[in-house]
């Protein structure tokens, strides 16, 4: 499948947050203001892309030839966790400016289901290496798009009169649902 189609699909028709409802924890808790939502989004894009780029060769070059494919769940988690730790140490040491905007979010998403989800989807869908990287990058951008839209809405909501019991996560879940419905309008444009 054309790389552009995959990218488009991950943004709109198969948005990881709004179609699969993965990565909901940071999606709800970090979407209160635009600046932190942006930082979180960039961190997600980065971690998703890098982990997919590393997990693909681990699966196809190590696990498949050795007939140990069933290990992929465990191994993907381990590589994601180790890699994020490593990247955090490097940014902290050599890129202090980046650490301030992005680094503090890294540990938060190490064990996020959206990150693992992307690595697992790329195997299930038999993507090639280039397709996997584009898919992971697109998923990250799609997630960022969703959280930024959400934080924009939540900023407006500060002035809204929300029923007491729904303030905070409650209304955010409902908005996420409505956004997902809106994104359903894209369904059928691309088949993955």
């Amino acid at each position: 499948m054309a790389l552009f189609m995959i990218f488009f699909a991950t943004l709109f028709t198969h948005n990881i947050a709004l179609t699969y409802f993965l990565g909901m924890c940071p999606f709800i808790s970090v979407s209160k203001n635009l600046k932190t939502a942006w930082g979180m989004g960039v961190a997600v894009v980065f971690v998703m892309t890098v982990t997919a780029a590393i997990n693909w060769p681990i699966y196809y070059k190590v696990l498949v030839p050795l007939k140990a494919e069933f290990l992929y769940y465990v191994l993907f988690i381990i590589t994601i966790a180790a890699l994020v730790q490593f990247v955090e140490m490097v940014t902290e040491r050599y890129l202090p400016a980046l650490q301030v905007t992005l680094g503090v979010f890294l540990p938060l998403i190490t064990v996020n289901c959206a990150i693992l989800g992307v690595s697992l989807f790329m195997i299930l869908r038999n993507y090639s290496y280039a397709q996997s990287v584009v898919f992971a990058f697109g998923s990250g951008v799609g997630w960022t798009l969703a959280i930024i839209a959400m934080s924009g809405i939540r900023t407006k909501l500060m002035f809204a009169d929300i029923p007491k019991g729904l303030v905070g996560p409650g209304i955010t879940m409902i908005i996420a649902g409505i956004m997902a419905l809106a994104f359903m309008g894209f369904a059928g444009m691309v088949g993955v």
């Binding site: 681990i58 190590v62 696990l63 050795l66 007939k67 140990a68 069933f70 290990l71 465990v74 191994l75 381990i78 590589t79 180790a82 890699l83 730790q85 490593f86 140490m89 490097v90």
Partner: peptide
């Protein structure tokens, strides 16, 4: 083989982290 694969990848990453 799976045990070996698992252990070697995990320890490889552990060494990387320890060195870092």
């Amino acid at each position: 083989i799976p045990i070996l694969v698992m252990c070697s990848i995990a320890s490889g990453l552990a060494v990387l982290l320890a060195v870092a």
